[in-house]
Design a protein around this nucleic acid. Structure first.
Lengths: 319, 319
DNA sequence: TTGTAGGCGTTATCAG
DNA sequence: CTGATAACGCCTACAA
């Protein structure tokens, strides 16, 4: 159709004809039907993003970066909230397989290493996070262990000798809590410091509220600690509040460091030292990997595993 | 096709036949093609959500609620980040008109009352926010003026006599800053208090950083104020930080109140008093309105204008 | 440079 | 209860 050529800005259309077409389109208030185009092309121009919750400092930040990166690649992003539930994560995979999306960026939180086989799908998927390390798909991760060790080391260098950690339940070694806890443990060991079990405080959920409650309890119980590594800034925010409630001075009596470098962290009182994992780079890489697979024809490319860098951001809470 | 009947769980299929179909589907690893279904049905099952930025405490919270509400209505949500730019907001409208989405929830921030005519489109749109009050579409808003007046009144009742406001540029009367500023002004007037121009502090952007800087400058300039109404919690968070930097005690010397009841507000030190506009209700209504229009055949329904309720959350910053 | 034919995968309609 | 047929709107290939 000549009309199609006009719509898609293709050459070989005489200016006069193009005008005539444009005029008719205007007159009829014509709109392309994207659904029909999608069917014909076998592409939708949309990728799925499955995260536990967009209303979280961390995933919100990441989602914003991913949407922006996708826009740069000419892709739209449809968001699926999985609530960190395994079945909802699998549901997102299914939708994607049904060609609703050209590809999927999946934050695996509920799924575990045992589910790696389910990822062996015939269409583009990029995993965000580390729970399914070494699975048969592209993978974008953070240097959790190294960065956590660096954060812990920082506390030690500032003179802390009794460093506690606030993490989630330690179910296995491959989730955020597991990895960051192991970095913490390595750093203490390397420094020749004890990491007694009383210093490892596992929360039922990684929320501000849980962090605040637990810290108050720790102080009330007379637990002896002078450093606190929180596995996320969200938990750290709660912890700072809890310490204030308990009348503990930060950094005077206890130094605190978080992980994620969430926007508010710089504005807390005291401002929160933290690990910055370069969200924008992670987002760009994730989208770039996906876009490459989407565009690809012929034999599938090798799986890529990208680990972002990190930097320590030192603020008042460890001054 | 009998196959179609099986896939869609329709009656009038003999069990034996159903089994045969299911078996074949499993054997062939068959997947429905959503693009084809969309074309045929004239629906995509997806609605668009156009907001300035998902990585903002307020829009992130709202987006999460909207995605959840949409899921309850059997709809997916595709996110468009407009950066509060008028042209990007219009672009979202166009995509929606192209039947990429069944409907659109649009936070008009860049568009103004002059653009109301552009909203006269023939397909479902719900406007979020108030910049295009009274336009030809459904509309979900907050009681900005009343709630701001209540917040200001609260400061006055706690004894503040010199109440300042931190808002954005006052370009017109219909954006967030304009409306909340006018509530502030009404409350002061009703209380018989002066609202000198020096108390109205307009920021270049509603960010934590801008809030912190401005507050430091206000104190450094020796501005006399004992109450501070911030038009968003984000700005208030920065303001609390700025006051701490300047050595001003909250609520001792200055009482502070925000607007939005963002998650972190309860955990700041001091915790932030604020206005809670019931995001979940707004989200539910917005999606319900859109879903009703999508499902509707026949003559278009009347435009609905829903204004959420609000509640004052009193915390330490105004104790 | 323009136009014609056909098919992408699904489902509504209606006949068997 | 099952199946044949046509059409949703677009684009690629090819023909004129």
């Amino acid at each position: 159709m000549t009309v199609s050529n006009v719509i898609n800005d293709r050459p070989h259309v005489r200016p006069a004809t193009r005008e005539r077409v444009l005029e008719a389109m205007a007159r009829l208030d014509y709109r392309v039907n994207v659904a029909a185009r999608n069917l014909r092309k076998g592409r939708t121009g949309t990728i799925g993003l499955a995260v536990p919750e967009v209303n979280s400092a961390y995933y919100g930040r990441l989602a914003a970066a991913l949407v922006a990166a996708a826009a740069r690649h000419g892709l739209r992003v449809s968001i699926e909230q999985t609530g960190a539930r395994r079945e909802d994560e699998l549901a997102a995979l299914t939708l994607s397989r049904n060609r609703l999306y050209d590809g999927l960026i999946l934050a695996t939180v509920g799924m575990g290493p045992a589910d790696a086989g389910l990822l062996r799908v015939d269409h583009p998927v990029v995993i965000l996070g580390e729970r399914i390390f070494g699975g048969p798909v592209d993978h974008v991760a953070m240097p959790n262990v190294e960065a956590s060790a660096a954060a812990t080391r920082h506390l030690v260098e500032r003179g802390c000798r009794r460093v506690a950690i606030l993490c989630g339940e330690l179910r296995d070694e491959v989730d955020v809590s597991g990895l960051r806890h192991s970095g913490y443990r390595q750093a203490l060991q390397a420094a020749g410091l004890a990491a007694g079990p009383e210093l490892v405080q596992c929360l039922p959920s990684l929320t501000m509220d849980a962090g605040a409650r637990r810290v108050r309890a720790m102080v009330a119980d007379g637990l002896d600690f002078d450093g606190l590594f929180c596995v996320t800034d969200t938990v750290a925010t709660g912890a700072l509040r809890g310490l204030a409630d308990a009348g503990v001075r930060v950094p005077g009596q206890v130094r605190v460091i978080g992980f994620d470098n969430v926007d508010t962290s710089a504005f807390l009182v005291p401002s929160l030292s933290t690990v910055d994992p370069d969200h924008d780079l992670m987002a760009e890489r994730a989208v770039a990997l996906l876009a490459a697979r989407i565009g690809r024809t012929g034999p599938p490319a090798e799986q890529v595993e990208f680990v972002s860098g990190y930097s320590l951001v030192i603020r008042e809470s460890t001054a």
